[in-house]
Design a protein around this nucleic acid. Structure first.
Lengths: 256, 256
DNA sequence: TTGATTAGTGTCAAAAAAACACTTATTAAA
DNA sequence: TTTAATAAGTGTTTTTTTGACACTAATCAA
């Protein structure tokens, strides 16, 4: 009651942006080069893309802004998955150094609302950053130590992705508009970290009704050309899924 | 870069606290009686329990504090499920009136991290509030208009509960230590809003290994007395679930 | 023409889910 | 003390879903 018991924290959104290219699941990170007064060599600093939420934005909008400023893309799959607010978030010297260069009050607490985004890594045109700040795709197996609690956030996102991909048809968001069944399977195998049976995978995907088979096929491959498919987005927009092997809430089952 | 683009918002946690009693799923709400200068009759105002996050608390701790101050209970099932941050959160006159009485800056934006709690409604001893503020259990079908965006938060929580209960064994959190199979089934039917087959339900629950059958039975009922069961909490604490019909991540499947 | 490579296809067995109806234990009322 | 009312408890069969498994087809390069 009575008076305000807290100094208001900063609120930011951080985006865990997944992409898939060269058979590898990748994470989009901000790579910063920060002068170190002591060593005279620049420190390299990786962090999740993020920014403070502005007065006129809701949380989704702030996350979308971060995403589109970085990739030039709009209408991307973006989902909030958790908020983090450890009062002791800024403990690493590098983090402090960077905050001091960027904020008036580097000691202020930051609460972050974390989002997971799935994009076609080939479609994203990374916006040119300054020489000291650029966006890079790193394979998720090579994610280095990140700023603040970003490693924890990333681990949580990865876990959320793994669960989500088995319940909702979101894998497509990581692929180009047209893709082959093998690409799709390889994507699922990567995310789930296990092999899947080719015939069973095809059967389930086709029965689920989320794929539209195209007449187009691969060209210029030195083996039997694969058929292309696209994802039936309409299903989820005007959710009349009565005739499909989809549950009413838009979920579908894959691999118990 | 450069300067702070935002005035820092308040950050609060709001708790959607579910209970189950008399075959009904209920929501714990704060009922406030606020003098209305115009009508001379008190306005009644319902809201989700919540409070600002304090400087020394992480988000979970703040939610736990709200919960235990209200119910006197600790160690309750509590899970963050979404954060909300509409910049236009305070639009209703009642909300303003109340904020003015409570905060120095009633116009400041509030971002709220919403939690879902499941408690045994009979176990919670509601802490006596002032005459103008008390906690009440309302059936979820009778939830009135709530303060701020609390109706939206509640709807989201209900949806999250419905999904979660099918994947993880959390229904037990809403029941007493000892419960009958029929109570459990009726709970699931209430949450899922559909009837379940008695025999199939029993089989699945028993095969899952999450129930411990007790020798104790109902007393004083004018029909065949039901056996009591309790929930096998150990399974999830020292998660060695190799011999159970549970997936490795602690999930279990119920009703495709 | 041959070899290398990846795409594409069907069946059977096992497991899981869904449908379905009667008997039993208890108390209250007749 | 018998009867009626009520909710508990119990198995089997059918259908659906899953999982395992191996060969043929189309293309390009050598």
């Amino acid at each position: 009651m009575s008076l305000n018991p807290s100094i208001n924290p900063h609120v930011s959104t951080d985006c865990v942006i997944f992409g898939f290219s060269q058979e590898t699941l990748r994470l989009l990170l901000i790579r910063r080069s920060i002068p170190n007064r002591l060593t005279d060599v620049n420190d390299i600093h990786y962090a999740l893309p993020g920014d403070l939420v502005r007065d006129d934005e809701d949380l989704d909008k702030a996350a979308n802004r971060v995403l589109s400023e970085l990739t030039g893309l709009k209408g991307i799959y973006l989902e909030q998955f958790h908020s983090f607010g450890d009062p002791l978030r800024v403990t690493k010297p590098k983090d402090r150094a960077w905050l001091e260069s960027v904020r008036q009050d580097p000691d202020a607490r930051v609460i972050t609302v974390a989002y997971m985004a799935l994009i076609d890594a080939n479609k994203a045109v990374l916006q040119p950053g300054s020489f000291s700040k650029e966006a890079v795709w790193l394979p998720i197996s090579e994610v280095p130590e990140l700023a603040f609690d970003h490693n924890e956030i990333f681990e949580n996102a990865l876990k959320a992705l793994k669960e989500k991909v088995q319940i909702q048809p979101i894998g497509f968001e990581l692929l180009p508009e047209k893709f082959t069944m093998s690409q799709l399977q390889s994507l699922y195998e990567t995310i789930l970290e296990r092999d899947l049976d080719k015939r069973n995978f095809r059967r389930k995907m086709l029965n689920s009704g989320v794929l539209i088979p195209l007449s187009e096929k691969q060209l210029g491959v030195s083996n039997k050309p694969a058929r292309f498919y696209s994802f039936n987005r309409d299903l989820f927009e005007n959710s009349d899924s009565r005739y499909l092997n989809l549950r009413m809430d838009g979920s579908f089952s894959l691999f118990g």
